[in-house]
Design a protein around this nucleic acid. Structure first.
Length: 227
DNA sequence: ACCCAGGTGGCCC
DNA sequence: GGGCCACATGGG
């Protein structure tokens, strides 16, 4: 079975450092995480740009702004009936518990912050962990659709449940902030370019480790032999 | 004209 | 716990 540390080395060698999360402040990481769900990143990016242009890109401002105003600005991110409310709800919460100060917000025990995030609307496990890892500097492993697809195809695990996949990486990879950040980012890079719904295995840097590819080749050679 | 994207919540069994 | 579905936009 493939070693997840070796997979990391290969992906890093192929794709290089990803400089993730793509944002210039912790608050932008959070806004991005909330607006990104089920949407191409460029659309979440456009929504953030609109908020910035409108001078409405800060916790206090968004906590006070009318939902209609936020809706108009974040429209390119889609799901406009839920995302504006999620963004506003987070900001209201942040203002309430930490006067809008993210440093204070994160200066509490990991489990406390994680449970709080999960209680907010639109914040599920992936969004919560992304925020904790990339904005809060907590070494917690982020699992997304790419992580599950790639891990399953490689044969690392046969699991789809968020907690189970997260536990797999946290027990098989050294718990390190920079490493966890880079690993997740590399999964996304690999998933976007290679390990897609229709995979491009010819260009895959880990295909020799991959259970999916191995069985693909086996089927192919059987068919060839039958001719 | 489809299919897809770095999910989440609601509802049912 | 699992299975299914709606949600909305913009790009391939």
């Amino acid at each position: 079975m493939a070693d997840p540390r070796l997979v990391y080395e290969r992906l890093y060698a192929r794709f290089g450092p990803q400089h993730w999360w793509p944002a210039d402040s912790p608050f932008e990481v959070i806004a991005g995480a909330l607006l990104m769900a089920q949407t191409a990143w460029r659309n979440a990016e456009a929504a953030i740009a609109n908020l910035k242009r409108a001078g409405l890109f800060d916790p206090h401002g968004l906590a006070k702004a009318p939902i209609q105003t936020i809706r108009r600005l974040v429209k390119p991110a889609g799901l406009y009936r839920s995302k504006p409310r999620r963004l506003k709800a987070f900001c209201e919460h942040l203002v309430r518990v930490a006067d809008g100060d993210l440093t204070r917000f994160f200066a509490r025990p990991f489990e406390t912050v994680r449970a709080e995030l999960l209680s907010l609307p639109g914040v599920g496990p992936e969004t919560a962990d992304s925020i904790l890892l990339y904005a809060g500097n907590f070494p917690t492993f982020v699992v997304d659709a790419y992580t599950i697809r790639i891990g399953r195809r490689l044969g690392l695990f046969d699991e789809e449940r968020y907690g189970a996949v997260k536990a797999y990486f946290e027990s098989h990879v050294l718990r390190d902030l920079a490493l966890f950040r880079e690993y997740h980012a590399l999964f996304v890079a690999h998933g976007k370019e290679i390990c897609r719904p229709r995979p491009r295995c010819e260009a895959c840097p880990v295909r020799d480790l991959c259970a999916y590819y191995t069985s693909l080749v086996r089927r192919r050679s059987v068919r060839h032999a039958q001719r």
